[in-house]
Design a protein around this nucleic acid. Structure first.
Lengths: 282, 282
DNA sequence: ACATATTTGTTCGTATGTATC
DNA sequence: GGATACATACGAACAAATATG
């Protein structure tokens, strides 16, 4: 049963490339006599650096398997914990991926492009070239707007909001989690409408909102929590790049009013964030 | 010798607030009999979650000190390693900061605003409201343009570029590292000129380049390496938000040509990144 | 389908190095 | 210099997920 190949992004599980990589030689600095830290810095940092080089130079094929931890420990003449510390460092940078029971593999560097174009925050153009993008509903909550959210949406202090989370996936590879928050008063039965219309854009249009413009866009980086890791099929500690935009509705007279807040948490190892600026002013 | 207070951003070394925080109660899930993992997930995750709550809710004062690791271990009835694993998780998120020999402290959440306004990538407006910003030269190298850099700058395959790195600091707190890369041919003795003029803007203007516009701006998140940690007075594993922009010079006839690449590595725990979009199209 | 081996994940214990007070 | 407290490293054991027969 051949698993289909993923054209755009690398799958969470690497393909069956099982060639083990040739390890770089390793001199343990000036090994005074026994062990412990030497002048060169911590041993696990030296090991991480020794492994980082051939990976970043592309000497090892993506999907290639590293020797098991005990072999690495024997090669570097250290305890298995020390190797694991170094591997954790590489995994944080997305250079390798470890799976319990399977092993440690070199990851690929291919990334999908996500674009902030300064226009409609939910238009399809934010994923240029990605034809297989699909979204699925993963959470739907009714919450009370906090101080911050109320201020962003221009709501009174106590106000109910929809909080709907979608997972964006291409070729079975999750790319991002998008959360939209909007006032329940203004969008009654929004979830039903969203299910019926099939896309945020159409659902909003059916309420009469058809032209948006982003304001107050912020970008932040943070770690994914356990829930997000499960949804995105990644493992902690993985990074997310979070783009939060307040969408103003643009009325016919040019009036603007905040309608919803869209928060997109991009899986950093799989997505590149691009900002497209307007043309220069004359 | 009273150390001066830092008005805008929190100092790397917390003030002398030594009130130890009251620890949350902790029930070890369903402790089968001895130890090892229980159904609730890894113990260090439970401890991290238990500590994360009061910090994120703001119940503990910024600068407050946590009990020492051995006390935490005794409180949670686990080994010191298990506590350290949980603390490392919080430190990655920037919630706490540990210093060898001193202790573990709650960090503050204040952040400085850095703004991508879609106009001149080196104008002072990208740090709105920050009056005490100063920059210092931390590195100057002459390198050969790689394939990627050559393509960005529109250079032939082999070409020398200046690579100049500045550290941006406000109130003795490092905020970011900015690296500018430009062709050596077009900017002879650039470093001397930069030193004489005192700012990138003035130095570039003295070569006749006075009006820029960003193109191909990308945003990425990654870990700071050891060198960057030293310059920014942070500790690994800390996150950087890297903004890379190609600056086009805008000529009198509206012609554009790439002149330099500016890469700004923002210290994620101290800086908020905002993207300002142009006005909506009519 | 099931048992077994392999491989990573977690925890405890112990010891020592090193920065800070 | 001494005490305190975090940083690093080793060893052992077991748990959990995966692969293999």
């Amino acid at each position: 049963m051949p698993r289909k190949n993923l054209p755009l992004v690398s799958p969470p599980a690497p393909p069956a490339v099982e060639a083990s990589v040739p390890l770089p030689p390793f001199e343990q600095g000036n090994h005074d006599k026994g062990r412990k830290t030497r002048g060169e810095g911590a041993i696990w940092r030296q090991i991480a650096a020794a492994l980082r080089n051939p990976i970043q130079l592309g000497e090892w094929q993506p999907g290639a398997r590293l020797p098991i931890e005990l072999e690495l420990a024997a090669h570097f003449r250290v305890n298995r914990h020390t190797v694991r510390r170094a591997l954790a460092d590489l995994a944080r940078d997305g250079l390798i991926a470890t799976t319990q029971g399977r092993g440690t593999f070199i990851t690929t560097g291919e990334k999908v492009r996500y674009q902030l174009d300064g226009q409609d925050p939910i238009s399809d153009a934010v994923w240029p070239g990605l034809t297989t993008l699909s979204s699925s509903l993963v959470r739907d909550r009714k919450v009370e707007a906090g101080l911050k959210m109320g201020a962003l949406l221009g709501l009174p202090t106590i106000h109910g909001v929809h909080e709907i989370e979608l997972r964006l996936t291409a070729d079975d590879v999750p790319l991002a989690l998008a959360t939209i928050r909007l006032a329940r008063d203004a969008f009654p039965r929004f979830l039903d409408v969203l299910r019926r219309e099939g896309s945020l854009q159409k659902a909003l249009a059916s309420y009469g909102y058809d032209h948006f413009h982003p304001a107050k866009t912020t970008v932040a980086a943070r770690q994914a929590d356990d829930r997000e890791c499960g949804l995105l099929k990644i493992k902690p500690p993985s990074l997310l790049t979070v783009v939060e935009a307040v969408a103003n509705h643009v009325g016919p007279a040019g009036s603007v009013a905040p309608v919803f807040v869209l928060q997109t948490a991009l899986c950093t190892t799989r997505v590149d964030l691009h900002v497209v600026h307007a043309s220069p002013r004359p």
